[in-house]
Amino acid sequence: MAKPKVAFYWCASCGGCEEAVIDLAEDILTVTDAVDIVFWPVALDFKKKDVEAMQDNEIAVSFINGAIRTSEQEEMVNLLRKKSGLIIAFGSCAHIGGIPGLANFSNREEIFDYVYTKTPSTMNPAKTTPQTNTVVDGYELEIPEFYNTVKTLDQTIDVDYYLPGCAPPPDLIMNAVMAILKGELPEKGAVLAPDKSLCDTCPRNDSKPEKLMMKEIKRPHTVEMDPEKCFLAEGVICLGPATRSGCGERCINANMPCRGCFGPVKGVSDFGAKSLSAIASIMGIEGEENMTDEDIQKLVDQIPDPAGLFYMYSLPSSLLRRKVMT
């Protein structure tokens, strides 16, 4: 029997998700034994025209990482959708927007202005910025359009499954590949990771005091953090309560609080709003009945950038999707 065909593609991403595939180490041999990789721009020399030449649904599954920020990415993922039986959003950026999604605090005009004129290393007195169409010596040149707003993969094409994480850990990737090969996938739309919250599986959960409270908010670089204690109990914001488990508590084990790259637990539509709610409720809970408006404002102001913190990985998938700019 012919082996199932598999494609990997990247959009607005850092390359870490490609690394994650390489990190499968010798397990990658199991994968390449079982499937034919027919498209993988970072590693193999197949071109767009090779994909175009395929039948619809000829590729069994395409793993697509990265958010969608240009017209070229949009075109490629639409092509892959047409040619693939299954589409898997691979990694935080494809799943919830990821770090490239932070660009939604700005817009194309501001980004171009900063990158092409204001950066200290740039000299651009004519203020030249990329144009989709340019005529040079009578020839028209075209480059992809840079969109105003970064989108998640499922805001662009229909997605079958999600592999969360920045980047997805090898065990979850292998589980997903095996489930596909054996035809044991859950219902469409599922996130291929546990439904628990990170706190549920965190080794520090037992150190949580009965009544969790944060008298003051400390930023990670300002405290020496106890490697055994729950961050929240130390006054450091950790987004574990709202985050899906499955990463292997990577940041926690490196003594850093979670920032939510796995996205929300099941049933939550806005990761940032949910995290904000969880954190605000335990802030200053001791003696809250005696707090004045000013006390509360002071406590809140210990979080200098709530939007950047609570939406670090998920702004494009939030209810508002971006900063409102007029």
Binding site: F105, A280, E289, D293, D301, P306, K323
Partner: peptide, 29 residues
């Protein structure tokens, strides 16, 4: 304050809304 039927619900509300106000302002609302 002091009158919430569930004792401390309104204290939670005030903290959440104060933080949310700051956050929506940064999001352009």
């Amino acid at each position: 304050p002091g009158d919430c039927h569930y004792e401390s619900g309104n204290y939670k509300t005030q903290k959440r809304i104060t933080l949310l106000k700051k956050m929506i302002n940064d999001l352009g609302i």
